[in-house]
Nucleic acid binder design. Structure first.
Ligand SMILES: [Mn+2]
Ligand SMILES: [Mn+2]
Ligand SMILES: [Zn+2]
Ligand SMILES: [Zn+2]
Lengths: 128, 128
DNA sequence: AAACATAACAGTAACTATTACTATTTTCTT
DNA sequence: AAGAAAATAGTAATAGTTACTGTTATGTTT
């Protein structure tokens, strides 16, 4: 019933800044390695726990890679293109959110989130 | 260089039929359990190996659930709605593929696949 | 039809991303 | 300052998936 109190933690804020300061959509291990440069003895479990909390509180986004989870500090509306050659994730603007409204009405579903992911080969991989 | 010869296997065809004969978008373990009703001593490794082969040869689709991979015997163009309450996956028709053509031209990316996934609460979960 | 090459198999071990556990530390309230 | 519990570091456990190994099934060539 009571809202869970979330205390400040140096670790959580550092993890948030790490995720927010990059465009690569890092996975948990990558966040862990980067955060260790600032907090050398941080635990991997702490990274996972805080990433999950940050997702739950809506401060970062959770993305699904082929076998892993990735995180995104950009919480604005955008879609993704993933290059299957180099594995990079690109932010793209593609979908007009309004199409989901009519969909929800038609099917009587309540839509809470949507995720569009394109995959293929990016320009730089096509060139080289 | 030589194309890899794919031999017939009773196991592979049975697995394919199992995936094609359901609408639930089963995960590997579910396919395993169902296939064991037909081939009681089939190995889980065999199920995984063949599911991957079937995906590679385009006979089934691979979907990403929260933590697992799911498979889809319906290889026609369609999108998905996932209910976060009951976990069910629903097939939906939503995206007009033509919007990707102009996107690819604009960004100079080659698009090989795209996946749109909506999540929320389905009608039967809203009702109950 | 028999011999051959190797794809596929069953069974099991190994791997890897993630979560759970535990004793200790940090944060916040009284 | 003292107390309650959220958060932590370190480690063990879990779970989905892949790798390995000796054997079997399949398709091809004699
Ligand atoms: Mn993004
Ligand atoms: Mn489907
Ligand atoms: Zn690329
Ligand atoms: Zn539901």
């Amino acid at each position: 019933m009571e809202p869970i109190k979330q205390r400040y933690s140096h670790q959580r804020e550092t993890i948030l800044q790490v995720v927010q300061s990059t465009l690569v959509h890092p996975n948990a291990d990558s966040v862990y390695k980067e955060t260790r440069k600032i907090i050398p003895n941080i635990s991997l479990g702490t990274v996972y726990r805080n990433l999950n909390q940050l997702v739950e509180s809506g401060r970062i986004l959770k993305l699904k890679d082929e076998a892993m989870v990735r995180y995104d500090g950009n919480t604005g509306q955008h879609d993704h293109f993933r290059c299957s050659k180099c594995g990079k994730w690109y932010d793209v603007e593609l979908i007009d959110q309004s199409i989901f409204k009519s969909f929800a009405e038609k099917h009587d579903f309540r839509i809470e989130s949507f995720n569009l992911e394109l995959a293929g080969t990016c320009k730089s991989c096509l060139d080289s």
